[in-house]
Design a binder for these strands. Sequence first.
DNA 1: AGTGAAATACTCAGTTA
DNA 2: TAACTGAGTATTTCACT
Lengths: 152, 152
Amino acid sequence: MSGPGALEPLDQAIVRELSADGRRSFTDLAERVGLSVSAVHQRVRRLEQRGVIRGYTTRLDGEQIGLPLTALISLTPNDPAAPDDYPQRLEHITEIESCYSVAGDESYILLVRVASPLALEDLLRRIREAARVSTRTTVVLSTPFEGRTPPL
Amino acid sequence: MSGPGALEPLDQAIVRELSADGRRSFTDLAERVGLSVSAVHQRVRRLEQRGVIRGYTTRLDGEQIGLPLTALISLTPNDPAAPDDYPQRLEHITEIESCYSVAGDESYILLVRVASPLALEDLLRRIREAARVSTRTTVVLSTPFEGRTPPL
DNA sequence: AGTGAAATACTCAGTTA
DNA sequence: TAACTGAGTATTTCACT
C-alpha cells in the first residue's frame, strides 16, 4: 500500500508543478523535474489513477463570471436525531462549491458563490429546505488569495 | 468596459468546460462549443488576458500528498486599531491555501492544510505571531465535495 | 525509465465574412 | 471584429528496449 504520508520526491515535484500550473505540458514538466517526457507521462497517469491527482480545474474570477458574491454558510441540523445525509441532500445545489464536515458547534460549512444578495437569500432558503438545517452566513468581502499551491 | 455581470454564451461554454477539466485540449473544446480550434484558442487567450481565467490548477488528495488535516481558522485582531495588512503578513505562510476577508464577528477566515495536529499547533502559533491576531479553529473532519464547477 | 516514431494537438500566418 | 483555413512545429502517446 502506497498510502498516505509521503510522495516520492519526483512525484512531489510533478505534483507541485501541476498544482502551480495545471496546463503545464509534459515536455515542460520533464525539463523541470529532470526526467524524460515519457517517464513524466507515465508518472502523471499513475498519479491520476491512484487518485493523488483528482482532476484539473481553472481558477476563475468570480466577479467576471457573474458570481461576485461569495459566502460561508454554517449548517446546524434542525433534528439532531435525523440521519446524516446532508451532503447528498445538498449535492444538487450547484451554487455550493465546497462542503466541509466539521468538528465544533456546527455540522457543516459550505462555500458558495452567487450573483447577488437576492440570489443568496434564495439559496439559503433552498439549503434549509433541502437539508432541514438552520444556517449562519458569513459574507466574504474580499479574497486576498485563494487556492494556493500546498507546501509539498 | 466588458465588466462583470455576464459572459458571452461562447465564452461561458468555454469557461464551463475548462472549469470541469482544466486540461481539456483546444481541439476538444472546439468540438464541444462548436467553433474552430483557432477561434477557441483566441478566446481562451483573451479570457486569460482579461483575467476571467486566473490560471489552472490540479485538484489533489490531501491525504495522499501528506496533508491530511484541513482546518478553517477565524482571525480576530489583537489590536483593533492596527493597520489592516493581515493578508501581507500571512502571505508567506504556505500552509494557508485561501484567505477570505469577511463581514461578521471575525475579520478573516483562513483555509489551511497541514500534516498533523502538531503541525496545526505550530501553524497557529506562527499565524498569531505574524499577524497579531487571536484565532478560532474549526477542524475539518471530512470533505464531501470541494471545488466544484460554478453555475455558469 | 528511456528511445523513437506515429498520431494529435498547438500556434500563427493569411484570408474571409 | 470574429472566425476560418492551412501548414509548420510541438506535443502526446505507445510499443519496445
